[in-house]
């Protein structure tokens, strides 16, 4: 009886450690994803800089600001 209990304990401890290790591995992955997220955030903010957008709009899309004459202001009804 005692022997079985002892073996059971050993088995349980082993299983626990295996799962714990797996958990650690998942945490590593989560850390990796965090890293990727922060890099993507940086990339997003770099790409959304006003200067960048202005540059693209003016150079590659050939957009220009409308003249005041062409702007029509709408009043609240």
């Amino acid at each position: 009886m005692v022997l079985f209990m002892a073996l059971g304990k050993v088995n349980a401890e082993h299983q626990y450690r295996k799962l714990f290790s797996e958990n650690e591995h998942q945490k590593d992955i989560s850390r990796q994803l965090d890293l990727e997220y922060s890099q993507l955030q940086l990339e997003q903010s770099t790409l959304s800089m006003h200067s960048k957008i202005e540059d693209t709009a003016k150079k590659s899309l050939r957009m220009k600001e409308p003249e005041p004459k062409k702007i029509i202001m709408l009043e609240k009804q």
């Binding site: 922060s38 955030q41 940086l42």
Partner: peptide, 9 residues
């Protein structure tokens, strides 16, 4: 919420 400073690992 546009980022001005951010830490990356």
């Amino acid at each position: 919420g546009n980022i001005l400073a951010l830490s990356t690992p």
